[in-house]
Design a protein around this nucleic acid. Structure first.
Length: 467
RNA sequence: GGCCCCGUCGUCUAACGGUUCAGGACAUUGGAUUUUCAUUCCAGUAAUUGAGGGUUCGAAUCCCUCCGGGGUCACCA
């Protein structure tokens, strides 16, 4: 059984980049009839943010990627929150000490000040910053003495010398690191919480994760994880590293620069299916040139080898287009339900049916739901009154509206009227449009009048000739 | 700086080493439909496949060098 996981740390907003990754974890698991698991890596108490967890659940629910197992989803491998594992027996500590006993890990008593100074010096001398193994050279007696003094310490893993650590990355292919390049990583902090590296390895093992798929920032630390799996004598999962979603200016997307979080996208009125399709297309382009597809198609055709090795750019223009495609696919009923939260104009005086009729006219003009307010406005609110310069034309228009029988006849009447005054039909339509809607770009004006009703339309016309 | 990864139109990408003077989509330009806008439809511009060397009868596809971009070097994940 294939098991993948999304293992974020709850530190703030949910970024689209994370969901891009998630679409991949989810797609791979589902394609293989496997399970997709959510695990919270909250071992850094300093970075924890209130509400971040909830935001995560909300985002996943919104885009309809529901984990098979996870904190609020249940499952046989819980707890799915690392801080809870620490509180329930702290298996990380147990395994860190196991390595200590085996001699493949050691206590480090160095202060953070010393470590920082060491790093600075190394950087100054153009050396790679790396722990200098001072504490590895401590004798048993020295260690015992420090322990007796209650000195704080961390546990570091001892990276073997002169070895190549290789693994097969399912996306990138064969990857190799030279062990002398790798730092003796801290695996257990002085507060007895694991660092990320110990945490993932232990939990991925405990949760039977078969495929560790994650962002590129983890590639350089993967050899440490491979080593840890070996040290423990555990089966090594398959690894696959994706790339980060990038900005239009090619840099990494981040919340700080005002890039999109899921909250932003939801507030702007993107549709969950459109966002899913868009991210899925970036995650797994196909050779059939099919771009608009549903989840089922995505899952059935998912291929890890097709996940791009380059960081796709989040192209807002294409997203906007795709969202429009999805909006046009909606039934009026669906559109009505989705759009309500985005509307601030007062619609209480009108019926649901009236709303539906107006939506019919603006549907193909909508790209994102938040535009609806502006496009719908004149159906609910009278435009600002301007006295017209063509009272003669408007008077005739009032008669035409008053005698409305059907769209075709009305259109013919307006064309005849244009002829009568020696005007272009388009110009007459424009006068009508301007008075009725107060806007220059609207749906065809005759259907608009039909929705507004004879009475309301005539009222709007009359006020412009001072009646 | 060391290490690792990546490099096809503006963007995302397609193309068993050979039906490719590189195909599609978005964007853009022009046109058709149209009462404006939008939708829809048609057509066009756009990559000598980052550069330079090889290998081969043949390279976007394989190899090397360089250049560019990204990631990473924490008691953060």
């Amino acid at each position: 059984m294939i098991r993948t996981r999304f293992a974020p740390s709850p530190t703030g907003f949910v970024h689209v980049g994370s969901i891009y990754q998630t679409v991949i974890y989810y797609g791979f698991a589902k394609k293989n009839n496997g399970k997709f698991i959510l695990r919270l890596e909250d071992t850094d108490k300093k970075r924890y943010k209130e509400g971040a967890e909830e935001a995560l659940y909300r985002a996943l629910e919104w885009i309809k990627i529901i984990p098979d197992e996870g904190p609020i989803y249940g499952g046989d491998y819980g707890p799915y929150v690392q801080s809870e594992v620490v509180k329930n027996g702290n298996r990380y500590k147990k395994y860190a000490y196991e390595l200590l006993d085996k001699g493949i890990a050691y206590r480090c008593f160095c202060s953070s000040e010393r470590l920082e100074k060491m790093r600075e010096d190394q950087l100054k001398n153009k050396q790679q910053p790396k722990y200098d193994r001072t504490c590895l050279r401590l004798t048993e007696e020295e260690i015992q003495k420090k322990l007796d003094n209650n000195e704080k310490f961390v546990i570091r893993m001892k990276i073997p010398d002169n070895e190549y650590i290789e693994f097969e990355d399912l996306i990138l292919g064969k990857i190799s690191f030279y062990s002398n390049q790798i730092d003796d990583q801290v695996i257990l902090k002085s507060d007895e919480y694991p660092t990320y590296h110990l945490g993932v390895v232990v939990d991925d093992h405990y949760m039977n994760i078969t495929h560790v798929i994650r962002g590129p920032e983890w590639l350089p630390s993967t050899p440490k994880h491979v080593l840890l799996f070996k040290f423990f004598g555990w089966e090594i999962p398959k690894f696959a590293h994706t790339q980060l979603l990038r900005n239009e200016n090619r840099s990494k997307m981040s919340k700080r620069k005002g890039d999109f979080s899921m909250e932003d996208l939801i507030a702007l009125g993107y549709l969950p299916d459109a966002i899913f399709n868009f991210l899925a297309l970036l995650a797994n382009p196909n050779d059939k040139n099919i771009e608009i597809f549903d989840r089922e198609y995505y899952i059935n055709n998912f291929d890890l080898k097709k996940v791009p090795k380059t960081g796709p750019i989040f192209d807002t223009k294409k997203l906007l287009w795709m969202n429009g495609v999805y909006i046009r696919k909606l039934s009026i009923e669906e559109l009505k339900n989705m759009i309500k939260p985005f509307i601030s104009i007062d619609m209480s005086k009108k019926s649901d049916e009236y709303l539906e009729k107006s939506l019919q006219l603006i549907q193909e003009r909508l790209k994102i739901l938040s535009e609806a307010d502006e496009l719908l406005k004149f159906f609910f609110v009278r435009p600002e009154v301007k006295i017209t310069e063509r009272k003669d034309v408007v008077k005739d228009l009032i008669n035409i509206v008053n005698e409305y029988a059907n769209d075709d006849i009305m259109e013919q009447d307006i064309r005849k009227l244009a002829e009568k005054y020696g005007m272009k039909a388009g110009d007459v339509f424009m006068i009508l449009r301007d008075i009725i809607t107060g806007q220059s770009a609207t749906p065809p004006i005759i259907p608009v009048i039909k929705v507004l009703g004879k009475e309301e339309s005539i009222e709007r016309l009359k006020v412009t000739i001072g009646e």
